[in-house]
Nucleic acid binder design. Structure first.
Lengths: 192, 192
DNA sequence: CTCGTTCTTTAACGACCATTCCACAACCGA
DNA sequence: TCGGTTGTGGAATGGTCGTTAAAGAACGAG
């Protein structure tokens, strides 16, 4: 009975993700979103009820693609060290990629800009972080079973440690060069 | 001959630091700065010529106090592991302190909000990071001389690794609990 | 074809943005 | 005490902010 939407909501959401990712939450205006999505202001506000709501959905959408990427890289063939190295070096390459225009990681950006300010967004960020932490944890637990890492190591602690290193790379990536980041990756791997 | 300023510029700068620290650059308005510093708009713009310039000076002022704090903690008595633990646990306590209203670290916040956007600010952030990295490096180099850590270890790599862990804690601190952060600290210390 | 519903477009809203200007106050050297 | 210079406080700037209102277009069900 009603008129159907004239656009693909997922495509629009991806455009919003790209905008927030590049500029941050506060620095993104409604006009930026209108320009980037191609929708009219009315359609935008009719579909997503506010800038804040749109950001929350963008964070969810971002998690779908980014956390899945980490999960896939972690279950690829190789030793635990090789697989973790691939994930961390993927971050290094992303940070060094000029065409990525210093976007970093949307979840990390949101954590620092809005962590503790907006509860729902903080919860979204936490969900994102925990999903990646759990992916690391599963692999460390299996690696310990397989004897790849010491029996005395705590897989949960290692997962959190690796997560911290990963996000530390995101921070240092804003100012450091590739060699410095690579040293961090190698020192992290050696710690297992 | 001219009329002298009726305020202490350093006090005003500290007030500005507190404002940017708590709210971020984009989310801080000129009105916020007027309210917090107690100056009139005219005096503010007469002393610091723009919001951006004031932020740059705030970043410098922040480095004075925060980097000095790390340097002092690192030269206090104790083994290298004890001293680094104190620095990292200081970050953990800061992140968990409710009264700190989730400010985090101004340099890290600036890195993620403005890194790669404004060149001068990026340079200011880099200066801040390198100063802390160098403080770590000096201690690791001395500790290797003293036989506290293996002769085969690279002090520069260890310094960068520790820096990444420290900033990783700043990110995870927005969502994780004290126990998780403490696990990260201990795992980091064990890696030396 | 018509009706009911939803989508789309555009104009407009009041609030607030960073910044500038200006009249006036305060100080110092003479 | 007075002149020169700078600091001060606040009104005013044009522009942009996030959001809403309103009017018409497009669709599916009957």
């Amino acid at each position: 009975m009603p008129r159907p939407k004239g656009f693909d909501p997922t495509e629009v959401l991806d455009a919003a993700v790209g905008t927030f990712w590049q500029k941050g939450y506060a620095a993104t205006s409604a006009q930026d979103l209108v320009d980037r999505t191609g929708l009219g202001r009315g359609s935008l506000y009719n579909t997503f009820s506010s800038k804040q709501q749109l950001f929350k959905e963008s964070l969810r959408r971002y998690e779908e693609t980014s956390a899945t990427r980490v999960e896939e890289m972690l279950v690829a063939p190789g030793t635990i060290r090789e697989r973790v190295r691939r994930v961390l070096m993927d971050v290094v390459h992303d940070e060094m990629d000029a065409s990525a225009t210093h976007r970093g990681c949307l979840a990390v950006n949101a954590a620092l800009e809005l962590g503790g300010v907006d509860d729902e967004i903080t919860a979204g960020v936490r969900h994102n972080f925990e999903r990646v932490e759990n992916a690391f944890h599963a692999e460390f637990a299996a690696a310990r079973q397989a004897g790849e890492i010491g029996a005395g190591r705590d897989p949960r602690a290692l997962a959190r440690f690796t997560l911290a290193a990963m996000y530390g790379l995101r921070v240092l990536g804003k100012t450091a060069d590739r060699q410095a980041l690579t040293q961090v990756v190698e020192t992290t791997i050696e710690a297992f």
